[in-house]
Design a protein around this nucleic acid. Structure first.
Lengths: 341, 341
DNA sequence: CTGAAAGCGCTAACAT
DNA sequence: ATGTTAGCGCTTTCAG
């Protein structure tokens, strides 16, 4: 009941049977080999003695650890906790455990963490912070470790992926802005080595063209990170170019918030003078000084789908490459307003 | 290089030596038994073949899994990610891995998760969401599994703990409010089964008395959760009592935000009519509609200290009970203002 | 239907 | 300084 851990052998000795009998009785897949009575006895003894299976021994024997490694770029970025929650929830329900590492957007670190986790015999990886060209994905593929990406994806078709439809997100943004009468629409794009950043940038270009609106290079600027400060800096650069604009599409909400602050520093009000749109719908955004119009993405669901997908991949190593696309949705709040011009 | 995993034996055969030699060479603690040359050869071979230690086998053999279980109430509450980050960082650096579970403030669930983790042979637990009376702590103690609490603590002196000085936090709040001239200070207290809630409530009472201010029971109300909606509800109740107040101390920032919103619904402005103070300093609070005056707590540090403490406990099972107190600090923003009365 | 025995990969006595 | 051997707790042939 207390202290020392109870093993299969303890139960076996207690009952005067062989450990293999106990093992079989406790495993639903093999318990039908035994008499129902025997199974009952064993199960009762296990309960009484407080037996908990030693996952380490199980893993060593079976070569499966029932563990999934999850790599995220940054716990502090509010996008990731819900994804993580979705993953952990689903995995737990299926008897799996997840181990988390974050890589601070550092590809070297990601690889180190992956190797470390590999030592722990993880059965597969969920990569939530991949770059378009990512050495850690290559490592997984080379070493035949099942892996999938969720959110940010890689360019090559190497692994299963869960993505959101950035094209659709950008389209909703642009339609919204157009309806409000905006014509001079600036873009604070994310770094182009990340799929979301790249895809939204591309979508911005060709969607504007489709609408017969000229894409001015001077209205495109790049944020160095998905952070508030990066948004300020990018906005400063944009303003310095002295090309007029009435709306800004930001790389994400944090960048949008930084943008708004910097606009104000230059005497520009949002949304009166400039409309600003974010991306992701981070928590409590409705409580912010300027409630941000943004794109909502189904984060919890992304996590759940990712968990489900990696397990599916584990069970069917040869199934064709999966590519799951989730729909984002525009959320109108108060950072966008009709164009005054 | 690819596919199959490389074991100690592979290296041994490759080099024509015994596995134990390889084992010794790769372990810094035992490598001095061998010639420097031998160690070098082994290490090189290990690198070339891409050896990664099988932690499961190691754990099985040593009876230590190099894993710490971390239980938090809710990933979505912005207080926890930084704590988690501090924990993971420190633990990784020391060669440990953490596995996370959250219990949704459900004590049954917490116990289930703890048992599950025990099956994975975790060496110890960090409990970040304990209740004052908590069955999971009892379980750990009974089964002699090292455990500590961080933040919320238990009443009994059973395990090591990291706490913040709630008394000091409340004192800073009350001093601040008094300086602003407030006399009618309401409290939206947290549930009393959580140490932070209880301690702050007690501190509120006796600190007011110390200042010669009457504690009016009608100015004390309880929030059912650390959430926005709970703050609104509590504020509604407070308002319904029709007892005048000019300041509110909230259970945490989320509750404070809810409070402010509900005050506005009743035509009361913060800080013009009522000053409101939060607790925790959640991220981006300065960007909110009403930038909240609040108490900052060293979350990252709490996590690091917790990680450090559990490892210390593992190595010195008999050291006296540790009780680490961290200092909170008032952060003045714009939700508090001089009393008009 | 159940028992005996081997072995997953590793470390730590115990040899030599 | 290195090799031999046993065994951590479990599952799984192979026997019976």
């Amino acid at each position: 009941m207390s202290g020392k851990k109870v093993t299969l052998r303890d139960i076996a000795e207690h009952l005067g049977v062989n450990t293999s009998t106990v093992s079989r009785a406790l495993n639903p897949k093999t318990s039908k080999m035994l008499t129902a009575e025997q199974v009952r006895r064993v199960q009762q003894a296990a309960d009484e003695l407080g037996y908990v299976q030693n996952t380490m021994a199980y893993a060593l024997r079976k070569g499966r650890s029932m563990t999934i490694g999850v790599i995220i770029p940054d716990l502090m970025n509010p996008v990731f906790p819900p994804i993580l929650k979705g993953i952990i929830n689903y995995l737990n329900r299926e008897g799996y455990t997840s181990i988390i590492a974050y890589c601070e957007n550092d590809i070297e670190l990601a690889l180190t963490e992956i190797k470390r986790m590999r030592g722990r015999q993880v059965d597969g990886f969920i990569l939530a912070g991949a770059f378009r060209d990512d050495a850690s994905v290559d490592y997984c593929v080379e070493n035949k470790i099942p892996a999938i990406t969720v959110g940010r994806s890689i360019d090559k078709d190497l692994v299963d992926k869960i993505v959101i439809d950035n094209e659709s997100g950008m389209q909703q943004i642009i339609e919204h802005l157009l309806e409000l009468g905006h014509k001079e629409i600036a873009l604070i794009a994310a770094t182009q080595n990340i799929s979301d950043g790249y895809e939204r940038y591309q979508a911005y270009r060709h969607l504007l063209q489709e609408q017969g609106i000229e894409v001015k290079e001077d209205l495109i600027v790049f944020a160095q990170a998905f952070k508030h400060a990066a948004g300020q800096e990018a906005t400063r650069e944009l303003l310095a170019r002295k090309v007029p604009f009435t709306a800004v599409i930001a790389a994400n909400d944090l960048v949008a918030l930084g943008c708004i602050e910097e606009l104000e520093n230059h005497g520009l009000n949002c949304p009166a003078d400039v409309s600003v749109i974010g991306f992701n719908n981070m928590p409590y955004l409705d409580q912010f000084r300027v409630p941000l119009t943004t794109i909502e993405i189904p984060r919890l669901k992304m996590g759940e789908k990712a968990a489900r997908l990696i397990l599916e991949r584990l069970n069917k190593p040869n199934m064709p490459l999966q590519h799951i696309v989730l729909e984002p949705k525009l959320l109108e709040r108060r950072s966008t307003a009709p164009c005054k011009g």
